[in-house]
Lab assay of single mutants.
Amino acid sequence: MALNTPQITPTKKITVRAIGEELPRGDYQRCPQCDMLFSLPEINSHQSAYCPRCQAKIRDGRDWSLTRLAAMAFTMLLLMPFAWGEPLLHIWLLGIRIDANVMQGIWQMTKQGDAITGSMVFFCVIGAPLILVTSIAYLWFGNRLGMNLRPVLLMLERLKEWVMLDIYLVGIGVASIKVQDYAHIQAGVGLFSFVALVILTTVTLSHLNVEELWERFYPQRPATRRDEKLRVCLGCHFTGYPDQRGRCPRCHIPLRLRRRHSLQKCWAALLASIVLLLPANLLPISIIYLNGGRQEDTILSGIMSLASSNIAVAGIVFIASILVPFTKVIVMFTLLLSIHFKCQQGLRTRILLLRMVTWIGRWSMLDLFVISLTMSLINRDQILAFTMGPAAFYFGAAVILTILAVEWLDSRLLWDAHESGNARFDD
C-alpha cells in the first residue's frame, strides 16, 4: 500500500549564491595573561575582544583620537594649579581661619623630617597626573615632529594605576569627618577644581587605549598563520617573532617567553612588605597634641575612634588600611606557593584573586592621604596640633611594595603550573 505524501511548494523562490571570495581570516594573537594562541577576527570600533580561555580583555573598544586626548590633557593642565594650590577646605580653629590644600599637606610631611613619605604622596597625587598630561601632550606634538614615541607609550600603561586623584578625593571626605570634632569646616574653591580634575582624569584614563596608539604610530604586520613560536610582548602586546637582537619589532624591548626574574622580584617585594606591615600596624601612625597632652593612634585605634562619629567612614578606612593590605599579602603568598608547588586545582579562583588584588591594591594609600591633609588643617603649635607617627613611612612603603609585587608577577606562570593543553579552566 503506497502512502500519498503531499508536496510542499515554497511560496518564495530560494536563491543560492556561491561564495565568490575567501572568507576573511583572523590574525593570530597570544593572550598576555595566559599565553593562549588564538585567531582574533577583525574588530570594529566600539567592540571589545576577550581571550577565549581566561576571559582577559585583549582589545578595548573604547578609543579616543589623539586630538581629543590632547584637549583633555590641556584642560587638566589648566585645572591643576587651582586643584593643588587653592584651598580645598576652610576650618575655623580657636577663632582663626585655616586653609588646607594639597601642596601644603605634602610640605608639612616633608617639613617634619619625613621627606620619603611626603614624596610618596607627591608622586601619586601630583607627579603621576602631571606625567600623564605631559605624556599625552608629548605624543600629540611628537607625532607631528617625527619624534620617538616608544618610551612614552611604554610608560603610559604602567602609569595608570599610580594616578590616585580619586583616592585622594575620598581622603578629603575622611579628613573632614575627623577634623569636624575640633573645628567648623567649609569647602574651599580649590575643592571644585579638584573634583573637576578627578572627573576629567577618570574619563581620560578610561578612554586612553595605549594598544590602539601603538597600532597608529607603529603598525606591524600581524601573524596570519598559526605558529607556536609566536611570542607576545608584555610592553606593547604585539604578537610576532623577535628581531635579530631578540627584541620586539614594535617597542624594541627584549621579547622573552616569560617575564625575567618574575618570581624572585615578586618574592622579594612580598617578604619586604610583610616585614614592614608589622611596625606599620604596631607603631603610632598619627599623633595629636591637645592642650599640651599627647595622644597617639595606631591604624586600628584611629579607626575605632573614627567609628564613634561615623561608622560608615570608619568601615571604608578599615577596608583600605587593614583589610586590603593583608588580603593582598595572603593572596600573593598563596599564588606564589601554588606556582612553586605546581598546583593544578582552583586555577579559576587564583586568576580571579590576582585580578582582584590588581584592582584594589592602590586604595591602601588612602590613610597616607588623610594624614597629609589633616596635617595641613590642624597645626596650632602646642594648643592643638596633628602630626604623623613613625608607622606612616612603614605603611606607605608596604603598600608600594605590594603594588610592585602584583605588577611583577607574570600571570602566565600560573598556567605553566597548571596542566598543559587546557582550553578551559575551572575549579
Rank of each mutant, 00 (worst) to 15 (best):
P6K: 10
C248E: 00
S309N: 09
V232D: 03
S338C: 15
A268L: 01
H252W: 02
D27R: 14
Y138T: 07
V275G: 04
T374Y: 08
L352N: 10
K57M: 13
K12N: 12
K178N: 15
V170A: 15
L282I: 05
Q33A: 10
S372P: 02
G361W: 01
L413F: 10
Q108H: 13
L139A: 02
D60M: 14
G26A: 08
L323C: 14
L130R: 01
K328N: 00
L69W: 13
N310M: 13
L200C: 12
A280K: 04
M388R: 04
I106R: 00
L197S: 04
T11S: 12
D166N: 15
V16T: 12
F425A: 15
A280C: 08
N148A: 03
F326Y: 03
A196K: 03
A115S: 14
A272N: 01
N310L: 04
F341N: 10
R380L: 04
W359Y: 11
C343W: 15
I91V: 03
S206Q: 15
L255H: 05
N379E: 01
L306C: 04
V195D: 01
M80G: 12
M76A: 03
V179E: 01
L197G: 03
L79N: 08
W363S: 01
E215C: 07
C34S: 01
A49I: 08
P87Y: 08
C51W: 02
P279A: 14
G127A: 04
Q104A: 14
C31P: 00
H207Q: 14
P6T: 08
F192M: 10
Y168F: 14
L290R: 01
L384A: 02
G118R: 11
R258P: 06
E21D: 10
L191F: 11
M36P: 00
S309L: 01
A137C: 03
E86T: 07
A307E: 09
S305C: 06
V170R: 00
Q382T: 14
Q108A: 13
M80R: 01
V102I: 06
Q112E: 04
S262E: 04
T298S: 07
C251W: 00
D35G: 08
F341P: 09
L283T: 05
W64R: 06
F122L: 13
V275M: 11
I316R: 00
L300W: 10
H418K: 09
Y50P: 02
R144P: 01
C236G: 01
P32C: 14
N291V: 15
P81R: 13
V121W: 08
Q345H: 11
I177N: 04
S308W: 11
I253S: 15
D63Q: 15
I285F: 00
L409F: 10
T349N: 11
R259K: 06
I167R: 12
D227H: 04
W267L: 14
S309K: 02
R62D: 11
G421C: 10
G85A: 08
R17K: 10
L278G: 10
T202M: 15
R256W: 04
I131H: 01
N44D: 15
R216F: 08
Y289W: 11
T224Q: 09
Y394I: 01
D243Q: 07
I383H: 02
R412W: 00
W140S: 04
L263I: 06
L153C: 12
D416A: 09
E42M: 10
R30Q: 12
C54E: 00
W162D: 01
L230R: 08
C266P: 04
Y28P: 15
I299S: 13
G293V: 07
L213A: 14
A100N: 08
S376D: 13
Y394R: 02
L401Y: 05
D114K: 14
P81I: 08
Q7V: 10
Q295A: 06
W84C: 11
Q33T: 12
I322S: 09
E21N: 11
L69A: 15
V102G: 05
A2H: 12
L94C: 03
R258K: 05
G396K: 00
S305H: 06
G26P: 11
P151F: 02
W64P: 14
I185D: 03
R150N: 07
R68N: 04
L213Y: 03
F238H: 08
D63V: 15
M155Q: 14
D426N: 15
A423K: 07
N101L: 01
A385F: 03
E86D: 10
L149P: 08
R258H: 09
H418P: 09
M147L: 06
I19Q: 11
Q220K: 12
S135N: 06
F318T: 04
R231T: 06
P222I: 08
M365D: 04
R260Y: 06
I116M: 07
F318W: 05
R25L: 11
G246S: 08
I403S: 04
I311D: 04
G26R: 10
L200W: 13
L93S: 02
M76G: 04
I322D: 10
W408N: 03
A73H: 13
Q112I: 06
T134D: 02
D297E: 03
T327K: 13
L255E: 03
A175L: 01
A268P: 01
V370E: 00
I43N: 14
G26H: 12
L197A: 04
R355T: 14
L409P: 03
C248I: 00
Q345A: 13
H207Y: 15
P41T: 12
F141S: 01
Y289P: 01
N148T: 03
L205T: 14
Q33G: 13
W363R: 05
R150A: 03
